[in-house]
Amino acid sequence: MDSFIIDAHIHLDMYTQEEQTEIIKSLKRHHVSSLISVSNNLASSISNLRLAERCSAVKPAFGFHPEQEIPNDNDIADLIQFIDSNLDRAIAVGEVGLPYYKRQENSNLMVKPYIELLELFIRKAKEWNKPIVLHAVYDDATIACDLLEKYSITNAQFHWFKGDKPTMERMSQNGYFISITPDVMYEREINQLVNKYPITHMMVETDGPWQFAGPFINQLTHPKMIHKSIKQIATIKKMPLPDVQEQLYVNTSQFFHLKNDK
Rank of each mutant, 00 (worst) to 15 (best):
D7R: 11
D7N: 07
A8K: 09
H11T: 02
Q17G: 00
T21N: 08
I24Q: 15
R29C: 00
H31M: 07
V32C: 08
S33W: 04
S34N: 14
S37D: 05
V38R: 01
N40C: 09
N41I: 10
A43D: 14
S44E: 05
I46E: 06
S47Q: 14
S47P: 00
A52C: 13
R54P: 00
A57R: 15
V58W: 04
F62T: 05
Q68Y: 11
P71R: 14
I76S: 04
A77D: 15
F82A: 03
L87V: 10
A92K: 01
G94I: 11
E95R: 08
Y101E: 07
Q104P: 02
L109G: 10
V111H: 02
E116W: 08
L118K: 13
L120S: 04
F121L: 03
A125F: 11
E127H: 13
L134G: 00
H135M: 08
H135D: 08
A136E: 06
I143H: 08
A144T: 12
Y151E: 02
S152Y: 11
K162G: 01
P166V: 07
T167M: 06
M168C: 10
R170V: 05
S172A: 12
P182N: 11
N191T: 14
N195Q: 14
T200D: 04
M202L: 02
E205P: 05
T206W: 05
G208R: 06
P209K: 12
G214F: 06
P223F: 08
H227P: 09
K228P: 02
S229G: 05
T235R: 03
K237R: 08
M239E: 09
L241T: 09
L241R: 07
D243H: 03
V244C: 00
Q245S: 06
N260I: 05
D261A: 11
